[in-house]
Amino acid sequence: MRRMAGIVLAALLFACIMYAFTFVKTYDYNSSDYYYTDPIEGGKVNETVTGHYIENTKNETGAINAVTAIVVEYRGFDTLGEVTVLFTASTGVSMLLYSLHQRRKRREANLILKEGSKIVLPFILLTGAYIFIHGHLTPGGGFPGGSVIASGFLLMMVAYPKYFLKESRVSITESVAGMIFVLIGMLGLVFASYFLENFLSLGDVGRLFSAGIIPIIYIAIGFKVGAELSGIMNNLKGVEE
């Protein structure tokens, strides 16, 4: 009975949210209905937030990928938070599972999987690294890149029952990458005027070495996300002493 009621409630909520999305207006990004007010100066500005992103991304951040520019530059503080959420989750998982050594006996994988994964692993890692290094130029970035890297280690864990990542290495990678992110933010406070503000030159827009701090932060995020997700899988598998 309770279960039925729960299902009905969930279905209603889902229907309600879906129905509500039909009210979302499509709009011209320069429409004057959405001109924002400046929270610091007060008063209306003849510009919309979306319009600002679309028109000024390249000049202000030096990134070609506007999504990256928003994620890492304009709303970089949120991204720092999201990275921290993942970090908190991985810390929580390792805290809860570290003491329980539920190591079950696993069957050996077949030859094709074992040999194939050895061959594929470097390419998976390379793809992941490519995705986060080129975050400011092509679709993708630190989060997908890190996930790709973690998927490579997942493949190894599936293929070899005894494959483990060293807990200490994972946690050092996490720590250093997180530290780099926060320190870059603080350097912005020192060398420019705001936290996480770009203090490096934007360079030649479109080249690999451009867009100031964006690639550095995205590389740190890539390492961090990769280490965290691999660490979670490592812990779920059972930590090796």
Binding site: Y36, D38, P39, I40, V49, H52, Y53, E60, E73, Y74, R75, G76, F77, D78, G188, S193, Y194, F195, L196, E197, N198
Partner: peptide
């Protein structure tokens, strides 16, 4: 007191 982070609001984030 407010502190702008990266870009002035509402383009960026600020603490108030």
């Amino acid at each position: 007191l407010y502190e702008i982070i990266a870009f002035s609001p509402p383009i960026g984030i600020y603490l108030y």
